[in-house]
Computed example of a mutant assay.
Amino acid sequence: MGFGHLLEMRVRFLPTQMAYWLMENFDYKTSELLIDDNVKIKVTEDDVCRVFGFPKGGEEINRFLYSACNALSMQWVSLFNVRHRDNIKIKAVLDKMLGEVDGGPWFKRHFLIAMQFSLIESYPNGTVHPFVMRCLEDLNVVRKWNWAGYMLKALIQHAQSWADNGKKIFCGPILFLVLVYVDRMHMEGSNVPRTIPICVNWSGSELLQRQKLEVDKKYFGSGSLRGPIPLPAIEQLEPANVGRNVAVSFEQSPESLLRSRMLKISREIGEKARFLKSVMLEASVEHRRSLVFKECLVTCSLISGIRLVENLTESTQSEHIAAPTEVPPATVANIDTQNVCSFFP
């Protein structure tokens, strides 16, 4: 259907200060991000394709006509134990989706409805209004709909509503605006590779790091503007390719593509190391002294090749752990868990 790469997204939270600044500086009348008096970023349907890889078909998605598909809407509501469709919450939709273990038609419909709620537009009370239901009758032609245009229109409509209602709650595609901004405005110290779709390149922690870089400079918009990533050839946007996350490099040379992939791999390794470090730092003294905690250190040391543990012996290892021959003997009980975290970046 052209949405499989969304499963590779790693953003779990947003840089809220940056997001608010972007909303303050987005002109919904011209669909432009106003960075300063001399720098503007025009936000278009093509940017949706770059960020999320959404299809850009010829059929318009009209959010006000979703009830026109009455039979399918009623069938969808009947799957939930509710009296009215306005009582369906996003958690219930996700539970239904995960229950479709065979990945059949209703898994795909639940997935796209959840995607609409999470990435395009939602309601602040958590109820789900399936504005895309009309697009889900025939799942073989989902790509004929203009999903990119739908997201851009939702951004403009919700930005206007946000401005008109005291700038309280924004229910539009804020992550889209954030990713457009961090991709187009480059800052020294941010080494995220530029590939399509952009959404799989950034994690929540990297967005927070980018926000910190700008906060430290005392203001947002302090980077240098760069051009948009060239969109790939049309055959690379076909379902067989997009669903497999075909990455199109900003620079098409094999060397730059290899460098981007290596940066992505090293970044992911660093993230996992920092996560492990945070787990160790948060562990209580009592937990650090436990045999289970120390055996976890042994396992991490053997898997990662990082010398978290200075010495091991066969007699003190778990029955599922095999020590490398080059590691000198010692005991698990003598592992210094207080100094382990110094091995992590």
Rank of each mutant, 00 (worst) to 15 (best):
K144P: 04
Q157K: 11
P130A: 14
M187G: 06
W147M: 10
L177S: 01
N146I: 02
P232V: 08
I174E: 05
D183T: 15
I196V: 15
Q160T: 03
A163K: 12
S222K: 04
N191V: 13
I234Q: 10
A233H: 10
A233N: 11
F220A: 10
W162P: 05
I198C: 14
F170C: 06
A154G: 05
S222A: 07
S203L: 07
R143Q: 13
V141E: 10
G149R: 05
D216R: 06
A148E: 04
E235V: 10
S203Q: 07
I156H: 01
E188C: 06
L136P: 05
N146Q: 05
N146Y: 02
R143G: 08
R210Q: 09
L152R: 00
C199D: 07
R194Y: 11
Q157Y: 00
Q160N: 08
L152N: 01
A163C: 04
A148C: 12
K168V: 05
L207Q: 14
L225G: 07
N201H: 06
V180F: 08
L237A: 02
S224C: 03
I234T: 14
S205Y: 02
A159L: 02
K217S: 14
P239M: 09
V141K: 13
V132C: 15
V141Y: 03
V141H: 00
N165A: 07
D138F: 00
V142R: 02
L177M: 06
P173D: 10
Q209Y: 13
L231K: 12
W162M: 06
P197F: 06
R143E: 14
K144E: 13
P193L: 04
D164W: 00
A163Q: 08
L175F: 02
Q157V: 03
L237M: 14
W202E: 13
V178F: 02
A159S: 14
D138N: 15
Q211P: 05
K167P: 02
K153H: 13
S205F: 03
V192M: 11
M187S: 11
C135W: 03
L155S: 09
L225N: 03
V192C: 11
F131T: 10
N201I: 03
L139D: 12
E235T: 10
P232I: 08
V141P: 00
A154L: 05
W162F: 13
G204I: 05
E235I: 11
A154R: 13
I234R: 13
K217V: 00
L175N: 10
I196L: 15
Y150C: 09
G223T: 10
G204T: 12
C135D: 11
V132I: 15
H186S: 15
E206A: 12
A159G: 08
L237D: 09
Q211A: 11
L213E: 07
K212Q: 13
R134T: 08
K218A: 07
N165C: 04
R134Y: 01
R194M: 11
N165F: 04
E137W: 02
W202F: 15
L155A: 13
Q209A: 15
W162Q: 10
I198L: 09
W145E: 06
